[in-house]
Amino acid sequence: MNLIDIRNLSIKLQTSTKPIFAVDRVNLTMKEGEVRGLVGESGSGKSLLAQAIVGVLDEKWEVDADRFHWRGNDLMRLSAEERKAIISKDVAMIFQEPMACLDPTTTIGEQLEEAVDVEQLSGYFWQKRQQRKLAAITLLHKVGIKQHEVCVKSFPHQLTDALCQRVMIAMALARRPMLLIADEPTASMESTNQGQIFRLLASLNQLKNMSILLISHDLENVTHWTNTITVMYSGQFVEAGTTEQIFNQPYHPYTRALVDSSPKANRMIPNKSRLMTLPGSIPTLQHLPIGCRLGPRCPRAQQKCVHAPKIKNFHSHQVSCHFPLKDNYS
């Protein structure tokens, strides 16, 4: 059974003239225990998609989907409160800029304690306070913070970014979620700290069978940690498949360009030669092209591309392109 199954999820912004689809009919499926990467440039709507799943989007965004199943439950049929109850129980999210995501005027300990699930506590109410404290300290140990005494008394600005992210992960773990959505958890972090955070997430995935949706703009980095990858471009679904499929045999011109632009995947290129990049830059929300939004930048674009392509499925490798690069690999 799929953990999460989303079909044609759109997020639109009502403007005075016409609605803008910031996310346009995106599909996402995840199995239990899977680590899926969600890759795209900044502004490709990947954070919006994640926030729509968790339900923390502002009111100005309208979310709409053909199918939104969570472990077989159709969430679209439930009321907003019921949806929130299910999601906040089973899905946790960590954000980029962890320091900004912690209340600057409350100590780490207090913030951890309020994340602790009441149902996990046993005993009378006078024992609960102590239990909460213990639970918070156990959570800190789980994410590898040993100096819990100093940590619970600190304010967020007294910790480093990597420590704050660990605390955020600890808070996310408090409810024992089935799915952890990590929205660029290591942006603006040094590479040693990045490795620590990714290793922590990987160990959580292996030890607790927790699924992870890892959002990143860095395809190359993400491939070390994920089983499957979904690629998005400018709010549209591009390609999904296993990490090997995406990295070694991308079918979509955009994914091809992403892979080509990373130096590690192109060890063979001669010294001091230019890396392949697509011309132009990602379109702004006000000037979205019709049809396939990659169209104006795509090296393989033809007249047909003014209509949005249907998703083609090649052995669970899905691609949304009229002219996939399928025949290039044989």
Binding site: V54, K84, C101, L102, T106
Partner: peptide, 19 residues
């Protein structure tokens, strides 16, 4: 962001406001 994070943590609206 921290209010958004608190929402994602599953706190109710009044908890977020008061705490």
């Amino acid at each position: 962001h921290y209010i958004k994070a608190a929402k994602a943590k599953g706190l109710t609206f009044s908890q977020i406001i008061y705490r």
